[in-house]
Each structure stands twice: as C-alpha cells, then as structure tokens.
C-alpha cells in the first residue's frame, strides 16, 4: 500500500454549496508527521477543505484518503476516521453544560468505553500538558478564551488522534491570549503530530510548518516550504496576499 506512508490524501476534490463551486480540484498529500499551514483570504475554501477531512462537510467529487482509508458515506468508516482525527475550532465549541474535566472525558467514556477513573487520569494528564489542570472542575463559561481553546486542544488530544486539524484556532482570541495557544501548538508539532492548520499566524507558519498551502477562490494556488513561500512567492495572487498580511 502506497497510501500507508501518507496521513491525508486529497485527490481531485470538488465541492459545491448549491451552485457555488467552493472547492475546485483540490490535490494535496500530507505525510505522517508533516505540519501543513493553510492560508488565504476569507472565503477561499480553507476551512471547507479541512472540514472535509473529518467529513463535517461532504465532498462531491474526487477522493479523500485518511490513513489510507477512503471517506465515503459509510458511517462506520466516518466514525473510524473521526476517532483518528482531532479538530480544534475557531469558536472553541466546548460543551458549556459540562465541566472542563467532563468535556475531556466525554468521548473517552462514550466512544472508547474507557473506565471513568482511567478517563479522568488521561484527561488530567492532557490538562496538565495545556497547563490548566487547576480549572478541571469549572465550567467553560468561567474560563478566558485562551484557556477555553487550550481545553479544546486537550479534549481532542484525549482521544489520542493521529492527525490534528486546526480551523483558525486563534482568530477569536485577544492578542494577549494568542501566544498561549500557539505555544501549545508548537509543543504538539515538536512531538511529531501530523497537523493541518488554517491560520493567519504567519510567525507560526514560519516556525513550525513543513509546507505552506495558499488557497484562493476554492483552489490551491501555491504550495511551498515556508522559507521559499515567504521569500519568493511564485503566484501573483500569493504575492498580493502576502503584501497585505506581512508589513
């Protein structure tokens, strides 16, 4: 199996919202352990693309392989993919009616059928890692945005995912809180996690990305290692975008 060496493969993927062509012939292969940063103007299809990888969105044409398995409408296959793929959202999406600890143990107990004691131990270990174990008994509404996003990362990690998707994880945060979340993500990258990050944090892209993907109007226009991407962007639209983003 050639697919076994790559974590995610998108082959000729198309998606439409009604008549609107949201993803146009997307081709991207992500190796295991690779860190990809996806950037581009809003509405360019970045979020849609990574949401297709755990099938929060359905693609209409082409093929998506996750750890070698194809994503189809087969519910079992989708559940299997979701067990291996963690996701962090722009709006955190913590469950407000559950405590921080319960947010983290929920999927362990219900999906993996882990015993409660063990699930709590796993959850506390990851809360430790994102440096907020002391908040375990609180509700999400009592935490700052940065803390909530760190809990969201811990919640995903509890399921021991092989791939992590980040959908603009710092866009809803105050400048002061961006760094605490990025620090966690850098640590995760250093531990060898396969990561796909939609983000506007170009500093993060420079620091951890193996490749930067630039998208516009539903297409991938350029893929390059960060040094090359920022120093000598090839596509006209990329240069224009970077001119706006970098000062």
């Amino acid at each position: 199996m050639t697919a076994s060496s790559s974590a995610v493969e998108l082959l000729g993927v198309h998606k439409w919202y009604g008549d609107y062509h949201a993803l146009r012939d997307i081709n991207l292969t992500v190796a295991k352990g690779e860190k990809i940063v996806v950037c581009g103007p809003s509405g360019s299809g970045k979020s849609t693309m990574i949401r297709c990888i755990n099938r929060l969105e359905e693609h209409h044409q082409g093929q998506i392989l996750v750890n070698g398995g194809a994503l189809t409408s087969d519910l079992k296959a989708i559940d299997a993919v979701r067990r291996d793929v963690g996701m962090v959202f722009q709006g955190f999406n913590l469950f407000p009616h559950l405590t921080i600890l319960e947010n983290c143990t929920l999927a362990l107990t219900w999906v993996k059928k882990t015993a409660r004691k063990e699930a709590e131990a796993i959850a506390m270990a990851y809360l430790e890692r994102v440096r907020i174990p002391e908040q375990a008994g609180k509700y999400p509404g009592q935490l700052s945005g940065g803390q909530q996003q760190r809990v969201a990362i811990a919640r995903s990690l509890c399921m021991d995912p092989k791939i992590m998707l980040f959908d603009e994880p710092t866009s809803a945060l105050d400048a002061e809180m961006v760094k605490e979340v990025l620090d966690i993500m850098v640590g995760l990258a250093e531990d060898g996690m396969t990561m796909l990050c939609v983000t506007h944090e170009m500093g993060f892209a420079r620091q951890v990305a193996d490749r930067v993907v630039f998208m516009d109007a539903g297409q991938i226009l350029e893929v390059a290692p960060p040094a090359q991407f920022f120093a000598s962007p090839q596509h006209e639209r990329t240069r224009q975008f970077l001119g706006q983003v970098l000062h």
Partner: peptide, 27 residues
C-alpha cells in the same frame, strides 16, 4: 443551539444518537 456544538461532538467521534442525547438535548 450553535451548530458548532454538534460539530465538535461529531468530530470527537460521538454518534448522532450520543450527540443528540449528551450534547444537543441537555442544552
């Protein structure tokens, strides 16, 4: 209920029934 709630639950691997029972209905 914001759609992000059930999206987050589904992304964690919870089934539709679990998502409805544990996340959607209580809220």
């Amino acid at each position: 209920l914001p759609p992000g709630q059930s999206e987050a639950a589904r992304a964690l691997g919870l089934s539709w029934l679990q998502t409805t029972r544990l996340i959607v209905l209580p809220q």
